[in-house]
Design a protein around this nucleic acid. Structure first.
Length: 660
RNA sequence: GCUGACGUAGCUCAACUGGUAGAGCAGCGCACUUGUAAUGCGCAGGUUGGCGGUUCGAGUCCGCUCGUCAGCUCCA
């Protein structure tokens, strides 16, 4: 070890090796010491866990890592700097622009700006993009300077930028810095990449409105989304991936595969109509879950689509959530004294299920009572929220309500988690996230139910999650007002996260409806209610499922499992025979009787993503065989119908992967 | 609900600055009778989302409205 004195520092690299350098050495110098390639790719440096500019001098011993495009933090820095570059371009093109914030995001960056009355179209985005490239080619450094709060305030008072002034208010003296590249200076904590020249391939993707600080009472700003890369090829790959993702969009596949349709004019927006093929898919999925639930002790119930307003007054849904419901059917306005009377389309199934629970007296020996219904509900979602099957106004929940004692909550939760994971596994959803939504202890007025019950429920969820090895993140303040919950989230083709399955503890409804059971000491007790839906809703689940498998459903779910293709008219009779044999074994089979070539019929079946195609002609009719082609594996071989059946038997039945 | 873009045949998309709305696929008909991803020919298909305005003339320009998409906000 060399002597260590005040002017020498020791750094530890990610591989554990150490180096000594004079104090004041920069990240860039260290990178150059390691290799020219790394120095060229270096974007920033991580010092004791903190990402910094490459050119900031190191004054103390530290663990460091040189960050490049291959590091998440390197990308973030790159995109943040790209946001500054876009801002500079905007400043040149629109001198009146006021900047607010411009952070990196998962895939790229955005900048929220106040453009006054100016709007931006696709053409203008291109123009900004051009300007960015022009500025990037000047290859100027991002320079950091620390400024006093007073100077920072003066700077933005002169510019008349109230947004930045508001941001500065929240900052402490001594932690304020500006970054400048070329003619553009921005309030910014940093860090940044060394130079604008590193940004070779910027692309502006879209423009949208966004509220200042995410509050809809604040002014609306223009948000410009973009992405950028160090190499042109990477941008091309990104655009290609995005194009492929759009191919998997369930709205596109839903049309192509004849699964569902909308008539927004006459039926209404957000009200999907399921075509025969989509309905087959939907009912297969429903039956799969229903059978599993019956095995697990759920009791099926059926309830009407409407209920009196009084039901929802008791539940608290009316009039509290009036805005989110279709307007009630009023048949008596009520007048001065009385309340209005009428019916409401049900926004959820729980009030009806509560009434079914109340149909009987319950002993602790009966509990848990598990009532299940694929119940269709209607919610008047905001117009801007509707989209495909993932956000609709009429949808069917795979709903069930479990009425149990407080002691039973944990075990019931474990069973539901197992059921949900089993369902997701059976459909090959490996990438899902679980989120435990807890109340915000600082804002207890928002929630109903006693503290002790909440604590107990939150702990029960944590314990249940721990016992199932589920990897769940906790989110404070995300609980429903009536209880904590566990949600299962899955991404769609465009990377948007959707809540599918949900398990929620509810103390509110048992209270409002004064539910009881009699315990072992002959005392009346309040049961706890658990709402749960492994799919969430069939609509959203199927929407995400379509994107997940790109329309290539597992054979057991495919609307048509087998397509029989006679090579000519003469062999339609034999095709009928084959189909009848398969149909007798509950295979969903169709015959292509069209007056087309074999090539055409194959193509047709392939584009419809039918799992198995059986080509039959003279040879097959003679031998009692079929020529098998699979969507997944192409042309296979010629076998007897029985051989084919036994081969695909397992494929055509769902396999529940749960632990029960 | 807010911001922006968009709305042409069942589907995918054309139609320069305003000048008679086109094509491919799908559909129907005829011929062909087919061997593993598109046989050929023909026919039909439209109040250019809706209402109003400007104009000699509107798919194209303007206003309103409905809807779709992206994002924001919301999400019992």
């Amino acid at each position: 070890m060399p002597d260590v004195d005040e002017t020498t520092i020791t750094i530890i690299l990610p591989d554990g090796s150490t180096q000594t350098h004079p104090a004041g050495t920069t990240g860039r110098e260290i990178a150059e010491g390691i290799g020219a390639g790394l120095a060229r790719d270096a974007l920033a440096i991580k010092v004791n866990g903190e990402v910094r500019d490459l050119d900031r001098p190191l004054e103390e011993d530290a663990e460091i890592a040189i960050l490049t495009w291959d590091d998440e933090e390197g990308k973030e820095t790159f995109w943040h700097s790209s946001a500054h570059l876009m801002a500079e371009a905007l400043q040149e093109l629109y001198p009146e622009v006021k900047f607010t914030i411009g952070p990196p995001i998962d895939q790229g960056f955005y900048y929220d700006v106040d453009l006054g009355d100016q709007t931006l179209s696709a053409d203008e985005l291109e123009e900004i993009e051009e300007k960015m490239l022009e500025l990037a080619r000047r290859d100027v450094a991002y320079e950091r300077h620390e400024v006093s709060k007073e100077d920072a305030v003066r700077h933005y008072e002169e510019e008349g930028n109230e947004y930045k002034l508001e941001l500065i208010e929240d900052l402490e003296e001594g932690e304020i810095s500006f970054y400048t590249q070329g003619e553009f200076t921005d309030l910014c904590r940093g860090p940044h990449i060394p130079s604008t020249g590193d940004i070779k391939a910027p692309k502006l993707l879209s423009v949208a409105g966004a509220y200042w600080r995410g509050d809809e009472t604040n002014p609306q700003l223009t948000r410009i989304y973009g992405i950028s890369f160090p190499k042109q090829k990477q941008l091309e790959d990104f655009l290609e991936r995005r194009r492929l993702a759009k191919e998997r969009d369930h709205r596109k596949l839903g049309k192509e595969l004849d699964l569902f349709t909308f008539d927004t004019d006459q039926v209404g927006p957000g009200l999907p109509m399921w075509l025969p093929k989509g309905t087959t898919l939907r009912e297969t999925l429903r039956d799969f879950l229903r059978e599993e639930q019956l095995k697990q002790g759920y009791k099926p119930v059926t309830t009407p689509h409407i209920g009196r307003l009084d039901l929802y007054r008791t539940s608290g849904h009316y009039p509290y959530y009036k805005e989110d419901q279709f307007p009630p059917m009023i048949f008596d306005e009520g007048g001065e004294e009385g309340e209005e009377e009428g019916y409401l389309l049900k926004p959820m199934n729980c009030p009806h299920h509560v009434k079914i629970y109340q149909n009987d007296h319950h002993s602790y020996r009966d509990l848990p009572v598990r009532l299940a219904e694929f119940g269709t509900v209607y919610r008047h979602e905001q117009t801007g929220e509707l989209g495909g099957l993932t956000r609709v106004r009429g949808f069917t929940q795979d709903d069930a309500h479990i009425f149990c004692t407080p002691e039973q909550v944990k075990d019931e939760f474990i069973d539901v988690i197992d059921l949900t994971i089993g369902v997701l596994d059976a459909l090959d959803f490996e990438e899902f996230e679980a989120q435990i939504s807890l109340r915000d202890p600082a804002d207890k007025d928002k929630y109903v139910g006693r503290d002790a019950l909440w604590d107990r429920a939150e702990q029960a969820i944590r314990d249940a999650v721990a016992e199932t090895d589920l990897d769940a993140r906790e989110e404070i303040g995300e609980a429903a007002f009536y209880g904590p919950k566990l949600d299962f989230m899955v991404e769609d083709a465009l990377g948007r996260e959707w809540q599918l399955g949900t398990i929620q503890v509810d103390y509110n409804l048992p209270e409002r409806f004064e539910l009881t059971y009699v315990d072992e000491h002959d005392e009346r007790k309040r049961p706890v209610m658990i709402h749960r839906a492994p799919f969430g809703s069939l609509e959203r689940f199927i929407g995400v499922l379509i994107e997940h498998c790109g329309g290539n459903f597992p054979a057991w779910l495919a609307p048509t499992q087998v397509q029989v293709i006679p090579v000519g008219d003469d062999f339609v009779d034999y095709a009928e025979e084959v189909a009848a044999t398969l149909r007798a074994e509950d295979v969903r089979v169709e015959i292509d009787r069209s007056d087309e070539t074999v090539g055409y019929k194959i193509r047709e079946a392939e584009t419809q993503k039918i799992p198995y195609m059986l080509v039959v002609g003279g040879r097959e009719a003679e031998d009692g065989t079929v020529s098998v082609r699979s969507h997944a594996g192409g042309q296979q071989d010629t076998v007897s119908v029985d051989t084919f059946l036994s081969r695909v038997q397992d494929d055509l039945r769902p396999a529940f992967a749960g632990t029960t």
